[in-house]
């Protein structure tokens, strides 16, 4: 991953400000903005390196974009770099959101605000479904993958089984099927 590392020096301030910008750019997910900043604007990573950082981030638990910031920060400035990048990423969105919710709390009793929020909630649920459907596209021709996705959906969504049990039961099954179909 570091074989093709760009020769430039990336400071803690660079990491902090770059991720500060990423944090403020995205609505409903900031990964596309992170890619543009890392690959196209700053050229800290090649497209292949970005894919690899992303796949490691998705492989591990935790918010994917926070994992990306930890990996990029580590790469250039070790532990302080990871802290600068992840704090830069979350700082402004948290300030904006907590300001927003404080204002919202003042107006939440007005019926028009309640109705608008209800509309946004209904659409936001639709966006979440669309994310799942888009992610399902590459899997839909493989029967066992569709089966695993549907069982996990039914267990969590319909039966409301706690996540830990579902992961403990389904991850090994999925792994065995993935191993067999290598």
């Amino acid at each position: 991953m570091s074989a093709l590392a760009p020769p430039k020096v990336v400071t803690l301030t660079d990491l902090f400000t770059a991720f500060l910008k990423v944090g403020m750019s995205g609505f409903g997910g900031v990964l596309p903005f992170a890619r543009r900043m890392l690959v196209e604007e700053q050229r800290w990573l090649t497209p292949d390196e970005f894919n690899e950082v992303l796949s490691l981030s998705q492989f591990l638990p935790g918010p994917n974009i926070v994992n990306v910031s930890v990996i990029i920060g580590r790469r250039f400035q070790r532990v302080p770099g990871s802290i600068a990048a992840s704090v830069g990423l979350m700082l402004m969105p948290m300030i904006i959101l907590l300001t927003l919710v404080t204002i919202y709390a003042q107006f939440a009793q007005f019926p028009v605000v309640q109705r608008a929020t209800h509309g946004v909630s209904a659409a936001a649920a639709g966006l979440m479904i669309s994310v799942a459907l888009k992610m399902a596209q590459p899997l839909r021709h493989t029967a066992w993958k569709v089966g695993i996705a549907l069982i996990v959906f039914a267990a969590i969504g319909l039966a409301r089984v706690p996540l830990l049990w579902v992961l403990l039961a389904m991850a090994p099954v999925s792994y065995a099927l993935a191993w067999r179909s290598r």
Partner: peptide, 28 residues
């Protein structure tokens, strides 16, 4: 590692679909 990544993809799809469903049930 490659098998783990292949295995996690459908699990994640199921989880996010469940998120959409639970949100819908909570909201609508």
């Amino acid at each position: 590692r490659i098998a783990t990544q292949t295995a996690l993809a459908p699990v994640t799809v199921g989880l996010i679909l469940a998120s959409g469903y639970v949100l819908t049930r909570t909201i609508d």
